[in-house]
Amino acid sequence: MEETHLEDSHHYGDSLFPKSTLIPVTIVCLLLFLVGVTGNTMTILIIQRFKDMKTTTNLYLSSMAVSDLLIFLSLPFDLYRLWKYMPWVFGEVVCRLSHYINEGCTYATILHITALSIERYLAICFPLKAKVVVTKQRVKYIILALWAFALLSATPMLVLVGVEYENDTHPDYNMSQCKHTAYAVKSGLMRTMIWVSTAYFFCPMFCLVFLYGSIGRKLWRSKNDLHGPNALSRERSHKQTVKILAVVVLAFAVCWLPFHIGRNLFTHVDDYHTAKLSQNFNVASMVLFYLSASINPVLYNLMSRKYRAAARRLFYPHHRRHPTGQRQLSGRDDVTTCDETLTGV
């Protein structure tokens, strides 16, 4: 989370915010932490434990769950800085690593969402080609490449942030802060990183809109081609799929746009009112940031029968399943069915 030091920050004691802001934000973040850690851990266990859940789509979801779990490692430090702006008591290494992991995992999650959307596009619009091109082995290599590229993109954060003191001439531990360094701001490296971060939002966003728009058109045009006894149920599934895809794009925009607006405001702070606006954006974007890391398992539970059935198997391994349920949990990839697309949210 970006920080902006306001002249009247001492009015709130050790924090830049009043307790009327700190308490509800902390409660919401702790709830998101509980939901996110539990849900993402459950997602990893479900996909790793059950063979029928190890589809190419779910390999992306499992890797995304790991990324979202790592993101929550930074939450305690963000809450600490909310309540106590100075001093920073965790040292230089934790300051740099927490920002680096946060940034790297953010990029990894965005890249996973984009790659997953491309895979869904191929599976729905070109199902025969997708069966040949999209294999589990290739997806594993792609996931490794996504992680490598994301972590490499985040390496400037190791230079951008550090522990700094209010008085550089006579450093005082009680006045230490984990923040963007003066060197980063003066050298222009900060602005470069802002451009990289912004590209990581708008490029995937345009990609998602194009891909899901194409998927929507494909499903809409193919509805008249559905024949047979299951035509009605397949048409209903296709309509549901379009709705879910719209939710994906909307959730992505809502969770990430304030984060990038706040960052851009931070680089243009030149007066009190702009600084105040930047701080308010930073708090709101922090909450939405952690919401984005916790919302996926909730969406899976709400929208995928297959995921809910697997979750029941995880918690009740000896529960006797109905034959219909066994049929729904078949190991095929379901590249054109609604269930697999819902699992890919």
Results as ranks from 00 to 15, higher is better:
residue 313 R to D: 10
residue 258 P to C: 03
residue 51 K to N: 10
residue 324 T to D: 07
residue 44 I to F: 06
residue 54 K to W: 02
residue 49 R to F: 05
residue 91 G to V: 00
residue 139 V to I: 13
residue 258 P to S: 01
residue 113 I to D: 00
residue 270 D to N: 13
residue 234 R to W: 03
residue 61 L to W: 01
residue 124 I to Y: 02
residue 268 H to S: 09
residue 55 T to L: 03
residue 33 F to G: 09
residue 287 V to Y: 05
residue 48 Q to K: 15
residue 178 C to T: 04
residue 331 G to L: 02
residue 221 R to L: 11
residue 326 Q to E: 13
residue 148 A to Q: 06
residue 187 S to R: 11
residue 302 L to K: 14
residue 21 T to R: 07
residue 275 A to Q: 01
residue 40 N to W: 01
residue 66 V to L: 12
residue 230 N to G: 04
residue 2 E to I: 14
residue 315 F to T: 03
residue 238 H to F: 05
residue 257 L to R: 07
residue 71 I to T: 14
residue 261 I to K: 13
residue 44 I to L: 06
residue 231 A to G: 05
residue 126 F to E: 10
residue 298 V to D: 02
residue 333 D to W: 03
residue 233 S to Q: 12
residue 334 D to W: 05
residue 31 L to Y: 11
residue 166 E to F: 08
residue 253 A to E: 07
residue 275 A to V: 01
residue 34 L to N: 08
residue 158 L to E: 01
residue 314 L to Q: 02
residue 164 E to D: 14
residue 293 A to G: 10
residue 220 W to K: 14
residue 262 G to C: 12
residue 17 F to A: 01
residue 132 V to A: 09
residue 263 R to A: 13
residue 284 A to P: 04
residue 280 N to A: 07
residue 282 N to I: 04
residue 36 G to D: 06
residue 324 T to Q: 09
residue 101 I to N: 08
residue 143 I to A: 03
residue 85 Y to P: 15
residue 253 A to G: 07
residue 179 K to P: 03
residue 280 N to C: 08
residue 201 F to R: 01
residue 48 Q to S: 15
residue 20 S to R: 05
residue 139 V to T: 15
residue 310 A to I: 02
residue 261 I to G: 06
residue 215 I to W: 00
residue 247 V to N: 08
residue 139 V to C: 14
residue 330 S to P: 02
residue 305 R to D: 09
residue 162 G to I: 11
residue 198 T to I: 13
residue 343 T to C: 15
residue 172 D to A: 10
residue 134 V to Y: 03
residue 2 E to H: 10
residue 128 L to Y: 08
